[in-house]
Amino acid sequence: MTGLYVALGTVAVAMVFGLLVRTLGGRARPSTAGAVPDELRAALDPGAAVTLVQLSTEFCGTCKQTRVLLAEIAHGTAGLAHAEVDLTEQPELAKRLAVLRTPTTIAVDASGSELLRVGGIPKREELLTSLRPHLPA
């Protein structure tokens, strides 16, 4: 009988978790991490005010969607660039960045400071609104 209750409880937990992921995922969170490691700095677009550095792995399910979305946003926004860093073979870098899930997108300004982070597929409008103060008018 215990097993049945556990089964029902597990289903409930999974549903709540799924709804949380759906509503909270993709939000831009302001960051206080400061200067990014050199590996990310090397990926920055020298001509852009802000580069969206997308962190991916080979085993990431939604990185492709994120790549398409960010490339499109960067293409249509002045001063914004998109770059991708694959962490599959760089677990040590992932640890330094404190990244546990992919895709994670880190917005970095031209001086190499981290502005904000997004876990999961970013929400387009919210991301653009958060980036606005850092982009050329």
Binding site: M15, T62, T102
Partner: peptide
Amino acid sequence: AAFGFCLGCEAYLL
């Protein structure tokens, strides 16, 4: 199944 969210994939780094 319900959300199309692949926990194992997202948590690869972890």
